[in-house]
Design a protein around this nucleic acid. Structure first.
Length: 895
RNA sequence: GGGCAAUUAGCUCAGCGGGAGAGCGCCUCCCUCACACGGAGGAGGUCACUGGUUCGAAACCAGUAUUGCCCACCA
């Protein structure tokens, strides 16, 4: 009896993921199959997870990203690799601080009332309570991370790495501090890097402002154009281009700023575009990045008229205390009254917004820390150019180069409380700054009057170290030796610059090796209309809801199947349904197999292949196909063709295994063909399912695990089982060819049957199958076999092969064979005549095309011989076919 | 301003030099003892446009148009 195999009566009629998923996940953890061991004697394969924010909740982007990583890890484990998938979370500076601040606000407390130390404690407490939520959600998805190694970007080891990197970069003069104009968020009250600013096209205004001459020379004044009239309070010059014929004569003159009356010079600078506007531009060094540079070149004064909160400062005179946008309206009004506002034009321009809170960014003059990026970027470009790092899909390489080649210094200091405090101490006595691994006791000057820099580091600074900091760096660990560089990084294109580029930067600098060989960039998950999912749009699909409803496997399979290289994924619940149905199909096909294995022995030797006795064509065919699919699947996963891999399995299982093999094996399994055929069929069934479940396991681990157990394949858990081996055999090719032929015949019969409305099952049509060319003998034996098979599966009743051609019949041609279908009075003669006439018309057109082609000498000469041959055969067959149709037509007309 | 991608059936997309494919949707028939979360059949397309390369182009090249995305110190 089917030793250990599950009784089909115990299996639900349709697949219910319910408790199955939790059960298996717990079992996998218990058995420790996700654990990596550096001492294992197997080739290493490693991935570091893109650490989700501790504040995060699993969204579809995570679900996709981690499903793909999980597929790779599970497949590699089965392929015999020593797999490390390193998990963890990111402290997410601003995001987390904002979340905790908001929760404080509910109690009516601000972080300032609480004080820095107490606030940071609150964040840690919050992290303890909620920080593992996303980890739990990743487990629900089935992520096979080595959880014992879970890290957090602010844990002890990683903080040590961060400090070490900062100090070393500082000592190499790759980190510096200075007062510059940076991107400032007036709501978060912190500096932001260029990347953290999101530019959006907004409908804005161009204000033309008249600056009257104040030097007694001739003329009225100079008109300049600005989008930000409120900044004129901080103007310290007007600039023109030195070679601008129109305006050059203005250089050296003096004008007075409207409202303030401040007298400022007209200077020359190359930065001015003589073609733009009036060719003259106002210079506000404290409030515009370009103007800041001009100011520095010309030694201009910087007057800060807007403060950190985006409110007009003391320098703004009567406007002091007004919000920057209120001030804009008020100042515009006053300019108008002064007659200094000749024109206001509407115009689109792009405005920077904070990527965390969407507040409009204010360029702000302040003291910040920077990483000198240009010198580091050279090695980063080289590493990709030399092939040490490869982007998949390749198109991202271009994006990467472009950014790296134009890289600017990275502002790494944030005026936040949550994050890695900058390891720099300022001396109150001499003003010197000491940067050090350990907290210094005294300054170089001997003073003990030291205070640590208030700022923390950009979150992405610690993320940049993730591939090696998580493995124990700066210590020399086994993990680093075995698993660094990691094999592949899987992430979305939205963080190529934020994260991928900076990991490359830090990895090369501190490890001397690239952090990963391949970078697989996947697309964004959007809603079914291609819209970005967002809470405000209300189109968010919550993966956890999906998992509850359909199971993690359905979600994983859907995301995987929709992942085409480089394309965005449009997701909707109805799409998930398609793939859920597949799981059910697999489930029921397995039930069918198990049902038919009930009386088979427990351990079944694998079928031999072509020469195995008692195998029929379809048996040999499915064995060959499993082998093909195995090598194809292996190749696809190797090349990160996830969508293709998922669809390969989907199509194979459904359209080949279920629709053809299982159907055709029914007579033998029923015992209609005797005990030998039954045993042989059971053997094939058993081994086909074994390989299919293995191949599917990386994508849909839960259901395959459950079925693996039901089949009692043994050898432990499927995740540990070996990947199937593609094994072809002599005759595999002909089995596939013959099967294709057989399928054509069956389709032809069904087609006819549907046309004459012969109800299925009620009566099988009488047909005869005859070799077109009686001299040809080669496939006869095989095809007799096939015809018997057809009869067995109830498609046809046979008339003797040598029976005379029925008087009134339809002839359908397939390869070397003709199929005769005696129609009796079963069809609508008029309709059939029309159909034949239509067909002849089509044939004529086709033959005209082909014969035209064959008459073309160029074609004959230059096209490959087999192509020409193919066309010749097509022509000959077409003619023969036409003749036959005409014959039949003749017969029909006589009726 | 620079760059990247896309444009093929009603919808979502494969195909990337030898005469158009899938899934969903639609129509017809069938609750056949694995599965109606199923089975069988069918209808439906100038492959965005214009040139070029080629014996041959949906595919390669150039340009145009439309859409989406990224980058940029567009006062």
């Amino acid at each position: 009896m089917g030793a250990g195999r599950m009784n089909v009566e115990d299996m639900a009629k349709s697949y219910e993921p319910g408790p199955i998923e939790d059960k298996w996940y717990a079992k996998w953890i218990e058995d420790g199959i996700f654990k990596a061991d550096p001492n294992r004697d197997k080739p290493p394969f490693s991935i570091v997870i893109p650490p989700p924010n501790v504040t995060g909740s699993l969204h579809l982007g995570h679900a996709l990203d981690n499903t793909l990583q999980d597929i790779l890890c599970r497949a590699k484990r089965m392929l015999g690799f020593n797999v490390l998938w390193m998990p963890g979370t990111d402290h997410a500076g601003i995001a987390t601080q904002n979340v905790v601040e908001r929760s404080l606000m509910k109690d009516g407390v601000s972080r300032h009332e609480l004080g820095r130390e107490a606030f940071v404690e609150r964040v840690w407490a919050w992290k303890e309570e909620y920080g593992s939520r996303i980890i739990g959600q990743l487990r629900k998805l089935g992520a096979s991370c080595d959880w014992d190694r879970e890290r957090f970007t602010m844990d002890g080891g990683l903080s040590r790495a961060v400090r070490r990197v900062f100090v070393e970069l500082y000592n190499k003069d790759l980190i510096y501090r200075g007062k510059y104009l940076i991107n400032w968020c007036p709501r978060c009250l912190t500096a932001l890097s260029d990347l953290e600013v999101e530019h959006r096209e907004l409908e804005g205004r161009f204000y033309s402002v008249l600056y009257r001459f104040a030097d007694g020379g001739g003329g009225d004044g100079i008109t300049v154009v600005t989008t930000r009239p409120e900044t004129i309070l901080g103007d310290t010059a007007i600039a023109v281009h030195p070679r601008d014929e129109r305006n050059r004569h203005l250089a050296g003159r003096r004008v007075s700023v409207p409202i303030t009356g401040r007298v400022i010079p007209v200077i020359e600078d190359n930065m001015v575009d003589p073609e733009f506007g009036t060719g003259a531009v106002k210079i506000t060094p404290a409030h515009d990045p370009n103007d800041f540079l001009v100011g520095a070149r010309h030694g201009l004064e910087s007057i800060q008229v807007i403060d950190a909160h985006g409110v007009m400062s003391d320098e703004a005179g009567t406007y002091k205390g007004l919000d920057r946008f209120e001030a804009r309206r008020a100042i515009t009004e006053e300019l108008k009254n002064l007659g200094a506002l000749p024109a206001v034009d509407g115009r689109k321009h792009s405005v920077g917004h904070c990527y965390r809170c969407n507040t409009i960014i204010e360029p702000y003059l302040s003291e910040q820390w920077f990483v000198r990026a240009q010198s580091l970027a050279k090695a980063d470009i080289e590493a990709v150019r030399a092939g040490a790092i490869r982007f998949v899909p390749e198109q991202w390489t271009q994006t990467y180069y472009q950014w790296m080649e134009n890289i600017r210094d990275w502002c790494i200091s944030r005026q936040l409380w949550w994050g890695h405090r900058i390891p720099a101490w300022h001396c109150a006595d001499c003003g010197e700054t000491t940067v050090s691994l350990e907290t210094p006791i005294s300054c170089k000057c001997g003073s003990a009057n030291l205070t640590q820099d208030e700022d923390v580091l950009d979150t992405w600074f610690s993320s940049a170290l993730w591939p090696f900091s998580t493995m124990g760096w700066p210590d020399d660990t086994d993990a680093l030796r075995v698993f660094y560089p990691t094999s592949v990084l899987v992430t979305g294109f939205d963080i190529i610059f934020f994260w991928v580029a900076r990991m490359i930067m830090m990895g090369l600098e501190f490890m001397g090796r690239e952090p990963f060989r391949d970078v697989y960039i996947h697309a964004l998950v959007r809603d079914e209309h291609g819209q970005k999912m967002s809470k405000s749009r209300g189109n968010v699909i919550d993966p956890l809801v999906i998992i509850d409803k359909y199971g993690a496997d359905a979600l994983r399979l859907t995301l995987t199947a929709l992942t085409l290289q480089g394309r965005d994924i449009f997701m909707s619940e109805s799409r998930i349904e398609t793939y859920r149905f597949f799981l059910n199909k697999l489930w029921n096909a397995s039930r069918f197999a198990l049902m038919n294995l009930a009386d088979a022995p427990g351990d079944i030797a694998p079928p031999g292949g072509g020469d195995e006795p008692h195998l029929r064509l379809h048996d040999r065919w499915i064995i060959a196909r499993v082998s093909d699919v195995t090598s194809e699947m292996t190749r696809l996963l190797e090349g990160y063709f996830f969508g293709e891999a998922a669809r390969l399995m989907y199509d194979f299982v459904w359209n080949e295994l279920c629709d053809w093999y299982l159907e055709m094996s029914k007579p033998a399994l029923r015992g209609d063909e005797g005990p030998c055929r039954k045993a042989a069929s059971q053997k094939v069934l058993y081994h086909v399912f074994r390989d299919v479940l293995k191949l599917l396991h990386p994508i849909i681990p839960f259901v395959t695990e459950e079925l693996w157990e039901a089949f009692a394949y043994g050898g432990g858990i499927i995740g540990r089982g070996e990947w199937p081996v593609a094994k072809s055999y002599a005759g595999a090719e002909s089995a596939e060819r013959d099967m294709a032929f057989l399928r054509d015949i069956v389709r032809a019969i069904r087609n006819l049957r549907a046309e004459v409305k012969l109800p299925p099952q009620k009566a099988a049509p009488m047909v005869s199958l005859r070799l077109k060319d009686p001299d040809k003998t080669a496939p006869v034996r095989e095809n007799c076999d096939m015809v018997k098979l057809l009869a067995k599966v109830g498609e046809i009743e046979l008339s003797p092969l040598d029976a005379p051609k029925p008087a009134k019949s339809i002839a359908t041609v397939t390869a070397d064979w003709e199929l005769f279908f005696p129609v009796g009075g079963m069809m609508d003669v008029g309709r059939e005549i029309a159909r034949f006439e239509e067909e002849i018309k089509k044939l004529d057109a086709e033959m005209k095309r082909v014969s035209g082609k064959l008459a073309n000498e160029n074609f004959i000469q230059r096209a490959p011989a087999e192509v020409v041959e193919k066309e010749r055969t097509a022509l000959a067959e077409g003619e023969a076919r036409k003749r036959r149709i005409e014959e039949n037509l003749e017969g029909l007309r006589r009726q």
